[in-house]
């Protein structure tokens, strides 16, 4: 018996492996196909930015750069002060993300876990801001910001966007999923609400916090109308506004504009690539 067993077992193992292989191949095939569709426009931009000669619009579209080189990127650096714009973008984004996480999760905690009069009204009012007309917000907010003396400041750019309905909603959902017994145990131990919030809720809501971070970051990084209204001095503009100077009335060069677009997108993409494990936490251990 002992000697005959290995044969079929090995075969089964091999079969399982083959099955797994086929499954994985299919999996990757689907993933790749979708990736081609989502990546292509960025790829085209990159190819355009890296090409130093040839036609930009060709049919069928170009797949590889012609005479690849960094000339267009160098021209971006020569035309606008990329470093200064990056610095401004980073300041605005960091302040926005930190502020949003704090303000939204603080607001979400009582809405998710505490009973108090007026709770539903407050939550309804917050949701209503998502729905009611917000087309003139920029105008009214600019008047408010300048009356507060925050025109031309980072505070003026960042403050109005911190308390967002989406963020509060997202954090509320996450807090609601925290098991009751954990909270009850803490209460029995005499923890204050702030301690529960800070030491139990926030760590357990880390995936939601990470997701909110990456979503807020993109919005803060890419916004251009609002910072351009608040900031009077162009040297305080973030990169999203700064790159618009590349498409001047008499200096529009599509390859340079493409290089500017690549420079704007790359940092966020890098951040996403290296922070994704945070919103996938709790998963790492489970797989092995």
């Amino acid at each position: 018996m002992e000697k005959t067993l290995p044969m079929p077992l090995a075969a089964t193992a091999k079969k399982i492996n083959m099955n797994k292989l086929a499954k994985h191949t299919l999996h990757y095939l689907v993933l790749t196909l979708l990736a081609v569709i989502t990546v292509y426009p960025f790829w085209w931009t990159l190819v355009t930015a890296l090409s130093t000669s040839g036609d930009v619009f060709t049919y069928p579209p170009r797949m590889w750069p012609e005479n690849p080189g960094l000339d267009n990127f160098i021209e971006v650096f020569k035309t606008i002060d990329v470093i200064a714009f990056y610095k401004n973008s980073i300041i605005i984004s960091v302040l926005t993300v930190a502020g949003t996480l704090l303000v939204c999760s603080m607001a979400a905690y009582p809405l998710a876990r505490m009973q108090f009069p007026g709770r539903n009204i407050v939550f309804g009012a917050i949701l209503a801001t998502m729905i009611l007309p917000s087309e003139v917000n920029f105008l009214v907010n600019f008047i408010t910001v300048s009356k507060l003396g925050m025109g031309d400041t980072y505070t003026g750019v960042v403050l109005p966007g911190l308390a967002g309905a989406v963020g509060i909603f997202l954090m509320k959902q996450a807090f609601e999923a925290v098991p009751n017994d954990l909270v009850d145990a803490a209460r029995v131990d005499g923890a204050t609400e702030w301690q529960i919030f800070w030491h139990i809720m926030l760590p357990l809501a880390r995936p939601a916090l990470a997701a909110l971070t990456i979503l807020t970051l993109v919005a803060a990084w890419n916004q251009y109308i609002w910072p351009s209204i608040v900031m009077a001095s162009p040297d305080k503009f973030p990169l999203s506004v700064g790159v618009l100077y590349l498409s001047g009335a008499f200096s529009f060069k599509i390859r340079v504009v493409a290089a500017g677009a690549v420079l704007t997108v790359l940092p966020i993409l890098m951040v996403f690539l290296f922070t994704q494990r945070y919103f996938l936490r709790g998963f790492d251990g489970a797989v092995k």
């Binding site: 989502t38 960025f42 931009t45 993109v218 890419n222 677009a261 997108v265 996403f272």
Partner: peptide, 11 residues
């Protein structure tokens, strides 16, 4: 994952 996120960040 980054590839699927690319359209979100594209200007």
């Amino acid at each position: 994952r980054a590839a699927y996120y690319l359209p979100v960040v594209t200007t």
